[in-house]
Design a protein around this nucleic acid. Structure first.
Length: 633
RNA sequence: GGGCCCGUGGCUCAGCCAGGACAGAGCGCCGGCCUUCUAAGCCGGAAAUCGCGGGUUCAAAUCCCGCCGGGUCCGCCA
């Protein structure tokens, strides 16, 4: 009975269609949709497209489907279903009286799924781009879990490589720990680290530009340095800039830090790691506010130091795809594609036809490894450590090629199962109006600032509406609204859409936003509080014949199926638009039909049950999207 | 040059994979609704050659081909 009266009846029709017309269940679920006109029925399925004589099916259906409150009819090749709201309503009230509430349908084949997301480099604070990654990843993880899968959420810390070397160099110059600097700047520790990173990186680039005679670029970078200096401590900034300028070869310094860290030598082993850990603490503080958490934090350096990287590399070196690319040792991925990728694999790997995949360089000529090589080893680790059936990497779509290269490399060195079960969930970047965001230059809107800005606005509104509430209560509400507004705005657009980030748009509190949904939930909750507990036994299902109540009833009852589909298709945006529609229907009804003031007791209970039903769906759906459902706002 | 993504009212987007049974939502604009469960709401209105051109089909925003515009990737960077 987990799907509830509506969804179960729909599914029984589906099973009968499978039997009678050979229509596959998943095809049926995909194509079943609301009818455009009320007179056709509630939902329709284009049966004629799959079966030439739909009349026969209609006849067979009546004896096959046991739920008597669903009636099928045929119009223009469409098989239409209409639900009898009174009979179905009685069944619903009986179920709700027994404690049933709509929840996502559980999968029949639970899997163990790793979701890796966020994985921001520990060199600058989280910005809105990371927030999109984290919001999508967290919503996916919540949805897959609700679907009945075992989900392990992992964060991968890229602490090996040039970026962390740059920030480490910066800290070695100023001679302070990240925490000491944070105190001195009066900033959050990851913000302090970001400042050092941008300063050091820009200083290095400025020197390089000057040395190769690109004066225009050098000038631009000098101006950027001046801006950065103002945002922090000017004497420390000058120290960094002058010391970097005094180096004969800054690149050699970075290279030394990188190779010593990769080799696990002190003091780099401790100093680099300490900075990365500090940054990560800052990230986690912010992410916790956003309601986002991880089961495991994986360190890139551990993959190297544990010997796993060496092991995977030796497997790669003994494979037949080893080749040379401009003197460097590489893997011939085109060769892998030729040998091992048939039509089915091409599909699963998302390898475009006629695609030219460059070889994957395994080592730099100085012997250090590259990010991609380490990522191959990490992919193996993710499967092995979690015993995963499937790994979902939430990674921006600009990394499509490298992600594909990793899959092909896995295939080439014998990790076929891993290669075919690793999904790149890609999303488009968030850009600022008129300019790109850049961590290297310190050009970004941090997530912390954005949350605070949203919170300030929300608090103002909340205080005006609830003058009797104290500061603490307002603060809690404002925080929930801020998080809800941000998270909802980042998952409601399809992941393939590039988002241009405008503060005004994200922080809007009106319709089509997270706060609109939160507000709807609060309204529903307010009714329930005033009404008290619902007496399902005395509720009269006849109340549901009213068109607005009926629409709310049917839309709410669709939740188990809609959410399951959204989870399977990895589409949180579908859940978002379903909830918006639900809120629209609820508010429309709310406006003209009072529950509390309903004189007829049986009708009043039925209405209250309807509020309970839709409020439950709202809360459940909002929770999956990471939008806090608050009883009051 | 090649691969991938995007192009739908002034703005932001849904619908495209599974062609009909949608041209839909929100913002903005114009006009209404608070002695009644939270007006962060509701009701009404104006506003679209679905980037362009071909093709397939009884039927194309949706499929195919070719263009145009925007983004992104094609590093011994991460």
């Amino acid at each position: 009975m987990q799907g509830g009266p509506l969804v179960n009846a729909m599914l029984s029709v589906g099973r009968c269609l499978e039997k009678l017309a050979g229509v596959r269940m998943d095809t049926y679920v995909k194509l079943l949709s609301k009818t455009p006109k009320e007179e056709y029925g509630d939902f329709g399925f284009p049966l004629a497209r799959f079966y030439p004589r739909p009349e026969e099916v209609l006849t067979g259906l009546s004896s096959c489907v046991k739920e008597s409150y669903v009636k099928a009819s045929l119009v223009g090749g469409f098989l239409n279903l209409r639900f009898d709201e009174k009979e179905m309503g009685r069944e619903l009230l009986r179920l709700m009286g027994g404690g049933w509430r709509p929840e996502m349908l559980k999968t029949e084949r639970p899997r163990r799924i790793v979701v890796e997301h966020t994985s921001a480099n520990p060199v600058h604070p989280l910005h809105i781009g990371h927030a999109r990654n984290a919001s999508l990843g967290d919503s996916l993880a919540r949805m897959l879990k609700a679907r009945g899968n075992e989900v392990i959420v992992r964060y991968y810390v890229n602490d090996v490589g040039r970026q962390v070397a740059v920030v480490t160099l910066g800290f070695s110059i100023i001679g302070l720990s990240p925490e000491e600097l944070a105190t001195r700047l009066g900033a959050k520790v990851d913000h302090a680290i970001g400042w050092v990173y941008a300063l050091t990186h820009t200083a290095i680039d400025a020197i390089a530009a000057r040395r190769r005679g690109d004066l225009e670029e050098a000038e631009k970078l000098a101006a950027q340095l001046a801006r950065l200096k103002e945002r922090g401590d000017s004497s420390l900034a000058e120290l960094i800039v002058s010391r970097v300028a005094s180096f004969d070869n800054p690149e050699a310094k970075l290279s030394e830090i990188m190779s010593r860290y990769e080799a696990g030598l002190e003091p780099e082993r401790s100093s680099v790691r300490r900075i990365a850990e500090a940054a990560l603490r800052g990230f986690m503080e912010t992410l916790r506010r956003m309601g986002i958490s991880y089961d495991r934090v994986d360190w890139e350096s551990d993959i190297v130091w544990s010997g796993l990287l060496g092991h995977v590399l030796s497997q790669a070196l003994s494979s037949k795809y080893v080749t040379k690319h401009k003197d460097a040792t590489a893997l011939d991925l085109m060769g892998v594609a030729r040998d091992k990728v048939g039509e089915e694999e091409r599909e699963r790997l998302k390898l475009p036809k006629g695609f030219d995949v460059p070889p994957m360089i395994l080592f730099r000529s100085d012997g250090t490894t590259l990010y991609w090589t380490r990522d191959v080893a990490y992919s193996v680790y993710k499967f092995a450590d979690s015993g995963a059936d499937e790994v979902i990497n939430v990674v921006a779509s600009e990394q499509r090629l490298p992600q594909l290269q990793v899959r092909l490399a896995l295939l080439g060195i014998g990790y076929e199962r891993e290669a075919l079960n690793m999904i790149h969930y890609d999303y488009e970047l968030v850009r600022l109006p008129g300019r790109a965001m850049s961590g290297r230059r310190g050009e970004y809107v941090t997530l912390d600032e954005l949350i605070e800005e949203a919170k300030t606005r929300a608090a103002k509104e909340a205080q005006a509406r609830n003058p009797e509430l104290d500061k603490g209560a307002i603060d809690t509400i404002a925080e929930g609204i801020a998080v809800g507004a941000i998270r909802f705005s980042l998952v409601q657009a399809g992941a393939t859409k590039p988002i241009t980030f405008e503060v005004e748009r994200v922080l809007r509190l009106e319709e089509n936003t997270g706060p609109y949904l939160q507000y709807t939930f609060a309204r529903a909750n307010s009714i329930l509080e005033k009404h008290g507990s619902v007496d399902y036994g005395s509720a009269e299902a006849a109340a549901y014949s009213d068109p607005d109540r009926r629409a709310l009833l049917i839309h709410s009852l669709l939740y188990p199926l809609v959410s399951a589909k959204a989870a399977d298709e990895l589409r949180p945006e579908d859940l978002a638009s379903y909830l918006l529609k639900l809120a629209d229907i609820f508010n429309k009804w709310y406006q003209k039909d009072s529950v509390i003031r309903e004189p007829e007791p049986g009708i009043r209970e039925a209405k209250a049950a309807l509020v309970e039903l839709s409020a439950h769906v709202l809360r459940s759906g909002l929770t999956l999207l990471g939008v806090p459902a608050m009883k009051r706002m």
